[in-house]
């Protein structure tokens, strides 16, 4: 044990613990708890029944009170562990309770009513995952539809983003034409225009095009990302022009040069942009909230917000659907996180 500790806390140079080391570990362990804890607590809670969610103080594991169907009774009866006078314990089902005395029956022998003081019994509980929280929203509510809409928006918007951004980046990196710097300036300028500044006129444009309450109305305004064009252009500038010249010698068309030479060579940058685009479009909230007002076209984010905004929040469903909404992003985090972190460190992209 002490060897493990020695290994874990071994420091370079073998010197003793400086206060900065103590602080470093305080910050890291604290960060681990604060950053992951809330999400883990949500995942944990999502497996609890409504009754267990209403308990205070809450338990860590999802418990349910056990019930049994007893011959002669229509409703299932709640089970209790009853302590006998001699100290032995047996499981009985409650028929009814009068003050401090409960009338109970032995499920194996339902004919005989046994009177038990409620001080001598505890509810029988067992660990059970309320998977119903995950199934019901898909069956009884429209969450399957929302999920489908979200996937559609994410996939289509990402594909269009990759195509249009890479074409524009190709033009801006490999051609010399009048007004190229003007176009670059224009793209830089749009970096300054966040969605919240053009909400009202953009809404009228979308409505005039008949895209209100359509998933295309969510997709189209987002696909011309200036950051995407920039990143791809930076990458394409590193591709030697000789490759293009050689292809032109061989009578390749410009489209073929773009398609057969530039795109394959830009694959790493395209992959990074694809990851970003998926996360962006999956997480989009404000714009879908405005464009989508009918339930059939809600994305997961909008649907989740709507259900969570109701007066009587059904937390057991909301928690489970929040977990479902988190899943793709958590997968990206686990498998592709390093592409994103290098992307941000390299270009300040977000």
């Amino acid at each position: 044990m002490s060897r493990v500790a020695e290994f874990l806390f071994r420091r370079r140079g073998g010197a003793g613990w400086h206060w900065t080391d103590v602080f470093t570990w305080f910050w890291l362990i604290g960060g681990l708890i604060v950053m992951f804890g809330p999400a883990l607590w949500l995942v944990n809670s999502s497996f609890k029944t409504p009754a267990a969610l209403a308990e205070f103080p809450p338990t860590v594991l999802p418990y349910v009170t056990a019930e049994a169907i007893v011959a002669g009774y229509e409703e299932p009866l709640q089970l209790f562990e009853v302590r006998n006078d001699d100290g032995s314990v047996r499981v009985l089902a409650e028929v009814r309770r009068l003050g401090t005395v409960a009338q109970m029956v032995d499920p194996a022998n339902p004919g005989e009513i046994i009177r038990v003081n409620i001080k001598n019994r505890t509810p029988k509980r067992s660990i059970a995952f309320a998977l119903d929280n995950y199934v019901q929203p898909f069956l009884a509510f429209d969450f399957f539809l929302y999920l489908r809409n979200s996937v559609f928006v994410t996939v289509v918007a990402t594909l269009i983003t990759l195509l249009t951004n890479s074409m524009a980046a190709f033009a801006l990196s490999k051609y010399n034409f009048r007004g190229r710097s003007a176009v670059m300036m224009l793209i830089v300028a749009t970096l300054m225009v966040p969605l919240s500044v053009i909400l009202v006129p953009l809404y009228s444009v979308i409505s005039a095009m008949g895209l209100f309450n359509s998933l295309w109305g969510v997709i189209l305004p987002t696909v011309a990302t200036p950051t995407g064009v920039f990143m791809l252009r930076q990458y394409m500038l590193t591709i030697p022009d000789e490759l293009i010249e050689a292809a032109r010698m061989d009578k390749a068309s410009e489209w073929q040069i773009y398609w057969r030479i530039i795109l394959p060579l830009t694959a790493p940058a395209l992959a990074v942009l694809a990851i970003f685009s998926v996360v962006w479009r999956w997480n989009d909230f404000l714009w879908p909230l405005i464009v989508l007002s009918r339930k059939e076209v809600y994305t997961l984010q909008v649907g989740l917000n709507t259900y969570a905004g109701q007066l009587n929040v059904q937390w057991h469903y909301i928690l489970a659907m929040t977990v479902v909404t988190m899943i793709p992003v958590v997968l990206v985090f686990i498998f592709l996180q390093r592409y994103i972190t290098t992307g941000i460190a390299g270009s300040g992209l977000k």
Partner: peptide, 17 residues
């Protein structure tokens, strides 16, 4: 990665958590 994790979460998920 630990400190980066919440950055990827959607605002709706963050708000609900």
């Amino acid at each position: 990665a630990v400190f980066f994790f919440p950055v990827l979460l959607s605002p709706v998920v963050v708000g609900l958590i």
